[in-house]
Amino acid sequence: MNDRLEKRLADIVLYGSVGAVLVFFYIPIATLILFSFTESRFLSWPIPGFSLRWYGELLADRSFWSALGNSAVLAVLATLFATVLGLAGAFAWSRYRFRFQWGFRVLTFAPLLFPQLLLGVVMLLWFSVLAGWLNMSPGLWSAVIGHVVYIVPFCIVIISVQMQGYDDTLDYAAEDAGATRWQILREVTLPLLWPGIFSAATFAFLLSWGNFYITYSLSGSARTLPTFVFSGIAVGSSPIYPALATLTFVPALVLIFAVDRLRRRADRKRALARAAAEAG
């Protein structure tokens, strides 16, 4: 085959596949946004007319507000714990070398290799036993623990990647200048790792916010947005769910682009600082 033709064909396959996958990824998202503006009670095509009626119905639904509150509490707590523990774990993963390190790595990575539902179910069994002993029932607290165990490995990996590019002569320089270990950590190491910590926290938040399987197993009678939607569509579909989807897409999109802007700005700053250091 001639090389020119081969390249042309390859281009068609490659550009085509990216285009096709983007369409594929956005089919259900676009469908939901479309149906959120329907006038009719039924979610069938064609849409008879456009209205914002279902947004009103959704906002008037009290169980929506309690699910929203639960989702927010759960995601904030899980993000906080998972990011802090992930940061600690990342140090042990990629800055230190110690006996039984492989064991530590295996243990803290293992939840990633577990189907989420099983992780949830296994923990549910344990929490039910614990709850029997302590006389309390599974609820948001157990969901927080489940989310943390599931999300920590992601945070460790993300922050470890940031540590790979870390120049530790900076730490030694601070030490030579007479800084204590805490000062070095607080004023040199953490600020430099900040972009990684920030992306880990964002990722943790979104993973927790959208999590269905673990919440479904562990949250008892407390409902978050995903389990609220799931139990709703199991009974019968209503246009309030597309409206809910559209409302939650917007903040997530804003968040992802904002984080990206921040990270790119930090990268640029670092590149500038390095260039300045080399020039000076």
Partner: peptide
């Protein structure tokens, strides 16, 4: 764009496919 699609609530996306 892919990250956004990926991190969006899977229950909602699956429901979108049904519709």
């Amino acid at each position: 764009l892919m990250v956004f699609a990926f991190l969006t609530d899977a229950v909602l996306k699956t429901f979108g496919w049904v519709l």
